[in-house]
Design a protein around this nucleic acid. Structure first.
Length: 422
RNA sequence: GUGGGCGUAGCUCAGGUGGUAGAGCGCCAGAUUGUGGCUCUGGUGGCCGCGGGUUCAAGUCCCGUCGCUCACCCCA
């Protein structure tokens, strides 16, 4: 029989790695609380239509990367490729906007995209992200950026930059698309295939192209900043001004348009160093049009970002910022089988009820092997419990760190172990 | 979807020109008959990804296939 293997692009997160994940997740939650964000958990799958309409039919995600299947009732279901549309759906469905005008929500959860895996790209990957729903003010945009920066800083990351741009409101974009197309038209024959198609379907995405010949043409292309309406211009200026006031270093990137259809006004990315070809740690922006795309009657302003945890781990590994696993074991109880084993087993339970972490022998091995196991488990102490010890109520407690051993009354054990915690 | 690289012990990897497998680490045991880490000694462990072909003989050559990995498109 052939061994069954995991699905391409998925990962088993083993104990020494899950420890690192916990460290990151704890830090993320801590900073979220500081900024007044609350966790929201939405289902792992949604109606396909949510993403088709919310993210945009022409985006790469929807057109070729979604895990879509038909369930037994013939509904088209999709494993979520991102979480902004689901959060907005939940916000609308639960009338959170009626409860209060500002909802600040965050999530930490797996996403799914059927792409060919490579460094920093998986089919099941994990993101943390925030959605600030309600406010149209540029302060909200900046707050999300600062929040992201604080998480990276708290984790000790230094090798990264912030890129920012404005893609304007609907009117700005109509203006800009016209100017861009006018500029590109004479060069069209020299551009790559996809860009020629984008010229009609979604010209702003051409700015994303990394093809060399397209690139050289684009260096002289008009910039969207010059096509912004007064509102959009003012919004962007205020965002930049707030970033300056808060001493955030950033780069304006006129070619930053981002892949998803729902962005308006501010678009930004956190770019990491030393990550290989996939160097975006996270990205986000404002998306005032999304709510209406998925069926809301009134406009709902919102801004947020999503950040990849696998890429964050890669970046942190690069800078050696991740903690080593700490077993947290206080004591290993070594016994000699038979009655001593039963007594040790019961003692373990008593200690555990007293908030002490205990490891016991489950293989019936020799004392020597048990001591080796105790050492390997990372336990601070080993308690050696034989027949004599059970009779006298006193046992040998060995401090594995100091390599010192003393005899101790079993009744004093809890206090003795807790003492070393301080 | 496309292209490159790689599949040999639990892990990392050696194995000119074909002669049916090795190291380091790990694991187990002993030196120390009730004491870990260090040291020494010994041991366990492999349909050499899978299928076919060439050959007296294939880990090695040829064909196919699957898997992993990096990259392109794009994204986290």
């Amino acid at each position: 029989m052939k061994r069954i293997k995991r699905i391409k692009g998925t990962q088993d997160i083993l104990p020494e790695t899950s420890f690192k994940w916990q460290y990151i997740e704890n830090t993320v939650r801590k900073i979220m609380v500081r900024y007044g964000y609350h966790e929201i958990r939405t289902p792992m799958f949604e109606m396909t239509e949510l993403f088709a309409r919310g993210i945009g039919q022409l985006t790469d995600i929807v057109s070729k990367e979604m895990y879509t299947f038909t369930d037994r009732s013939k509904k088209s279901i999709t494993l979520r490729p991102e979480c902004t549309a689901p959060v907005m759906r939940a916000y609308l469905e639960n009338n959170l906007g009626e409860a209060r005008p500002v909802q600040k929500l965050y999530y930490i959860s797996p996403m799914f995209r059927q792409e060919n895996p490579q460094a920093g790209r998986l089919r099941q990957f994990h993101q943390f992200g925030v959605e600030c729903i309600g406010p149209s003010a540029p302060e909200a945009d900046v707050e999300t950026i600062l929040l992201g920066l604080d998480i990276y800083q708290e984790l000790g990351l230094t090798n990264f930059t912030v890129k920012i741009n404005s893609v304007g409101d609907a009117e700005s974009r109509i203006n800009y698309k016209a100017r861009l197309k006018e500029f590109l038209e004479p060069h069209l024959t020299r551009m790559c295939h996809t860009c020629q198609e984008r010229y009609d379907s979604n010209p702003m995405r051409i700015l994303d192209c990394k093809n060399e010949s397209c690139n050289s043409i684009l260096s002289d292309a008009p910039q969207i900043i010059d096509s912004l309406t007064t509102d959009a211009r003012e919004h962007f200026n205020k965002v930049l001004s707030l970033l300056d006031q808060n001493e955030v270093e950033y780069q304006i990137d006129h070619r930053l348009v981002r892949g998803l259809d729902y962005y308006t006004f501010t678009a930004y990315e956190f770019i990491g160093g030393g990550l290989g070809a996939q160097n975006a740690l996270g990205g986000g922006g404002r998306y005032d049009l999304l709510a209406e795309e998925i069926g809301s009657k009134k406009q709902t302003c919102a801004v947020g970002f999503a950040a990849g945890i696998e890429r964050l781990i890669m970046a942190m590994e690069e800078e050696n910022l991740l903690p080593q696993i700490n077993s947290g074991i206080d004591v290993f109880i070594a016994t000699f089988g038979g009655e001593t084993q039963d007594a040790g087993f019961k003692l373990a339970r008593t200690l555990r009820k007293n908030d002490i972490s205990v490891h016991t022998e489950l293989m019936g091995r020799s004392l020597k092997a048990q001591m080796r196991e105790a050492n390997r488990s990372g336990a601070r102490f080993a308690l050696i419990l034989g027949e004599e010890e059970i009779k006298t109520g006193r046992a040998a407690l060995k401090d594995l760190l100091q390599s010192e051993q003393k005899e101790i009354a079993l009744s004093d054990l809890v206090d003795e172990i807790l003492k070393t915690r301080e």
